[in-house]
Simulated assay, not measured.
Amino acid sequence: MSRESLPLPPRPLRSRALPVLGLALLALVGASFWSLSLRWSDFLGPQALGQMGHFLASFFPPETGAAFLRKTGWATLETLAMSLLGTGLAALFGLLLAVPASLAGGVSAALVHGAARAVLNLLRAVPELVWAALLLVSAGLGPLPGTLALALHTTGVLGRLLAEALENVPPEPAQVLRSRGAGVVQVFLFATLPQVSAQWLAYSLYRWENNIRAAAVLGVVGAGGLGQILSFHLSLFQMREACTVLLAMIGLVALVDALSAWVRRNHFA
């Protein structure tokens, strides 16, 4: 049989499924536009645009009184502290849960693996706002429930990411240490953890940036920080004060973004 007459190998299932998946996604997007009955003419009409312009104009000029700026400054520091402490706790407990969530082996290891994965899924599935609302019942108003809400949700996110990173670690360094008589803890500290430390840092910094925004939103339910005073002034239609708070949020996010970029650049250099 000549080479030209040989049958072509079948295409991989993945490549054949991609066009079908793409068409299904396009159909879902089209069905979404149809089912929502969006009235773009009302949203982009002259009257709607005029009302939005009038609303935006009411935010300016921002409130710059000394007393209000001091109040906003303390709320900014509170938001920063909430996000930093919540992310730090999540980085620690996420790592502790990621270790059993990445284990594989016998029946006992499978049970521990499944339990750890279930805890991470539960923590990650509940949004920060819901955690804060639940914790407000027991902890009361203030930054404590907001910090704990950030820590709980972020623990689920970081734990899942770190578990997958641990599962993909090359086994050769650990095998070398085991062959030389190293224990389980020593193998993890000196072979496994150094290989995922860069990812651990990158994931934690990224979540810290996200938690700055989340901490600002949590104030809406009374969890302290910038979000709480923003919700207060918006409810009273004090738009100039709300504009000052929004500018503080933007500045804080930009500061944390620049700081995390500097840390990543110097760590990975």
Rank of each mutant, 00 (worst) to 15 (best):
G227F: 10
A214Q: 11
I229F: 11
T244Y: 04
A215G: 07
S204T: 15
S197F: 14
A198P: 11
F232A: 07
R213M: 00
V220H: 03
I229T: 11
L189H: 11
V221E: 04
C243W: 14
L246P: 07
M239G: 02
L193I: 14
N211D: 13
V196A: 01
L226Y: 08
R240W: 06
W200Q: 07
I212K: 03
N210T: 03
A198V: 15
C243K: 10
T192E: 06
S197Y: 13
P194Y: 12
L234S: 10
A191T: 14
A242T: 14
I212S: 01
W200N: 04
I229D: 04
Q199F: 08
Q238K: 11
A202M: 10
V245Q: 04
A214W: 03
S231D: 08
T192V: 09
V196N: 03
A202P: 00
Q195D: 06
L230P: 00
R213Q: 03
I212L: 07
A198R: 15
L246R: 08
M239P: 02
A202E: 08
L218N: 00
G222P: 00
R213S: 02
L234H: 08
G219Y: 07
F232P: 00
R213H: 04
L189E: 08
Q195L: 10
Q199L: 12
Y203S: 05
A248I: 13
A198W: 13
W200D: 03
Y206C: 06
A202D: 09
